[in-house]
Structures are given as structure tokens and as C-alpha cells.
Design a binder for these strands. Structure first.
Lengths: 139, 139
DNA sequence: TATTGTTATACTCTATAACTATA
DNA sequence: TATAGTTATAGAGTATAACAATA
């Protein structure tokens, strides 16, 4: 075992990189990247949210959000309407098409993850998820 | 629990991101990024390697390697000498200064990781490492 | 005056193709 | 001819600052 394999960061990075490469491949027919998929997920969970909301929660710069939403709107996955209560902001919603992409790729995502984590037992997979959630919650 | 928290990829990404931000901050006084730290680590473990060797093993494009090594050589962390057996390639070595940076930042890296993983018990930390290694080995 | 979204611009990181020097 | 390294260039992805519309 070499020195760099003893770092959690390197190990996490390698596993994540592998997952991401596969997942991004699966997203490419839908012309979005992993970030944009995350945005779709967020909008599904927070209908009528603003670009600012996503920007804050997902820690994406608000100027970057503009181009992400431009892109998703251009593909017909997301709909911008002005928020009647505050006309500075948008009220964002998934379209039916966007919802389809989200669901189909969610299945693909979980399938991809299973493949990468195949060497683990069911117990280990569950432990890994619990451990990650425990760390994430306190971040 | 929201949907996106149920993905290993999102959880891994969040934890890694947090580690990386802290680690890169700790590297900044030494004017290198995480990739370049990885290169130093590789050279330590593989003295007299060529740029091509690093490029292949760390999956960094060889043209990108040129600027990384330029940078590390400029800082006096790495020494380029021509390989006498094949004068096309370099024989790369850490300087004493490079070795110092590597060691001091290794301590910092492990300390940073401990901070992020603080919510875990010793057993959980060990399980996490074992699980990650198990997945990584089969990648 | 502060906030949401926008635009123009610049910066970082990386990749592609053509070049050189060695083999 | 093939390979290691180099250079110039272009492409993502992101960030900064100035602006418009609205609060």
C-alpha cells in the first residue's frame, strides 16, 4: 500500500471520479452535466424556487446559475415564470419533459452507483451510506 | 431526508469538496494545488520517474504535466535531469525543499481529514477506509 | 438602499494538434 | 517510425464587477 492510498481524500476522489465519469456519460444524450442534473433534482424538491435559492443551497455562483437555467430552459426541462409576489425573482418549475429526464436518470444513477459499489456487501453499502450521511450532516 | 441525499455520489462529493477546500487552503502558502501535491507524492514514491510515468499513473495529460513540472521546478520543489539511458525523457527527483513541503502538508492533510471525519467513531473511520479501499482496488 | 437576475469579461484548468529532439 | 517533452491554441467551467429591474 503506497502512501497516497492512505488518504481518505484520494480514495474518495478515485471512487467519486469513477462514478461521475459513468454518470456523465449517461447524461450526455440529454445534453446536461452532473451539476445541471443536481439543479433539476433541487427544483423537483423545491418547486417555485428562485435561481438565488438554488445558488445558495447548491453553492453555485448566481451568475453561473443564469447559464445553467438558460440551458435547462432551452432544452425544455425547466420553466421560468415571474414570481408574482416578488417580480425580481423567477418561480422555477420542472416541465413534464424535465421530470422524465430526472426520473430516468435517477434510475441510471442508482444503477451506476451499484456497479461501482458492487465489491461491497449489502451491510457495507448500508454502513457507507450511514457514515457519509453522518459526516455530511455536520458539515 | 431529501432525494438527492440518497445518492452515494452526492454524499461523496459533499464530503470530498469540504476536505479539498480546506486542504487547498493549507497548500496555498506553498503555491501549489492538490494536483501538484499529488505529483510530489508520486515523485517521492517513484524517484527518477519521467513526466510520462506520472502522466499515465495519475491520468494527467502529458501537456498539462509540462506546466505542473515547470511550476514545481520553478518553486525549487522538483529537479529535472536528463535520463542518461534515454535522453528524450527526464529523471525527476524531489529536492530537500520539496520533501519538506510534502511532509509538512502530509501532516496537515491527515489533520484536515480528521477534522472533517470528527463525527465518526474510530471504528467507523476504520470501516470507511476499508470500504473505500475495497472499492478502489477493483476499479 | 438592498436584492434578483443579467451581461461582459477574465481566470483556471485541461485538452488538441503541430513541433523538436532523441530513439 | 515511434516516443518524451514542448508550444500555441482553444475549450470547458467558474468567478468578478458593473448594470437593469424590482423591492
Amino acid at each position: 500500500m503506497e502512501k497516497w492510498n492512505q488518504s481518505y481524500g484520494f480514495l474518495l476522489g478515485k471512487v467519486l471520479q469513477k462514478m461521475e465519469i459513468k454518470f456523465v456519460e449517461g447524461l450526455s444524450p440529454f445534453e446536461i452535466n452532473a451539476r445541471q442534473y443536481g439543479v433539476l433534482l433541487f427544483i423537483e424538491g423545491n418547486p417555485h424556487c428562485s435561481q438565488k435559492d438554488i445558488s445558495e443551497k447548491l453553492q453555485i455562483d448566481r451568475t453561473t446559475m443564469v447559464s445553467h437555467i438558460d440551458h435547462l430552459e432551452g432544452l425544455g426541462y425547466v420553466e421560468r415564470t415571474k414570481n408574482p409576489n416578488d417580480r425580481r425573482s423567477y418561480s422555477l418549475l420542472l416541465t413534464a419533459k424535465g421530470k422524465d429526464v430526472l426520473d430516468s436518470r435517477w434510475e441510471f444513477l442508482t444503477h451506476t452507483e451499484s456497479e461501482i459499489l458492487a465489491p461491497l456487501s449489502e451491510l457495507e453499502k448500508q454502513l457507507l451510506k450511514e457514515i457519509l450521511i453522518k459526516v455530511w450532516i455536520t458539515l
